[in-house]
Design a protein around this nucleic acid. Structure first.
Lengths: 141, 141
DNA sequence: CTGTATCCACTAAGATACTG
DNA sequence: CAGTATCTTAGTGGATACAG
């Protein structure tokens, strides 16, 4: 009917196209995937090396993350049947293309993180003020 | 000692710088935030309009997502004290800067999604083969 | 060394009902 | 219209122990 509704319709249009991307974004947006990709971005690397680089990751999560990436064709897994066994992980060509947009996001976070932290501070402050005003209303004396 | 270890050390160096970004990435990388930002990217929009555009979001998640974004200074919230009440949400300047890297990621997902889906297919196929080979071993006759 | 399997705690998220 | 409150369930992730 009006401008606003037109804008909303446009959003809905883009929205459908977005859904698919969201699913993909969820994959790479989780807690560990980006860190693991970062670890792999420098070349082939073994399981326990990843584990050391990505500090704090559990064996379970590392295995799950790597398997997920392998499943999506972003990482290749090569087993050398030696004793002890040796498994190397490496970004595929597809996986390497991911580095570019990842860097864009990374640059954004680095650039705007101070502003975000400042905003959080201000928000927390306003919340404290609102809370104290509440208190003085309910228990004035 | 060798090239690999050098690479690993380099990764560890970058790693520390990454941690902070990860935290921020977790914020914007969740299921709903990106969709909501997409809805807001076209201009000021009211609560229930967002709700309609971002299909499937619950009231709870919408409120939480908006509050999170407001907290981080990415979205501004304006209340018009009319009856019925009217609340408009809008991207701040900071929030608008987020659109750029978001588009980069979006472009990546659109471009490479077919490859990812194909990789998943192939992976599933290999898994089926491995499973059937297992079966023929354990129950040969 | 490179995983898998199990258990458990915690949180995230949906449904529902209610308030200003 | 724009939320808040509460309940319940599903998924995530960590610790541990064990296997190939």
């Amino acid at each position: 009917m009006d401008d606003t509704n037109t804008a909303v319709r446009a959003a809905e249009h883009g929205h459908t196209a977005c859904r698919a991307s969201i699913e993909t974004l969820a994959r790479i947006g989780d807690k560990w995937t980006v860190l693991v990709v970062g670890a792999l971005s420098l070349g082939p690397i073994r399981y326990n090396q990843v584990r050391r680089v990505v500090e704090g990751i559990s064996q379970r999560m590392l295995t799950l993350t790597l398997k997920g990436l392998e499943q999506d064709g972003l990482v290749s897994r090569t087993v050398y049947p030696t004793i002890p066994p040796r498994v190397e992980y490496e970004l595929t060509d597809l996986g390497r293309t991911l580095i570019v947009p990842l860097r864009a996001v990374h640059a954004w976070t680095v650039e705007h993180r101070p502003a975000i932290l400042a905003a959080r501070e201000k928000f927390a402050e306003r919340e404290r003020q609102a809370a104290s005003r509440q208190t003085s209303f309910t228990t004035p004396k």
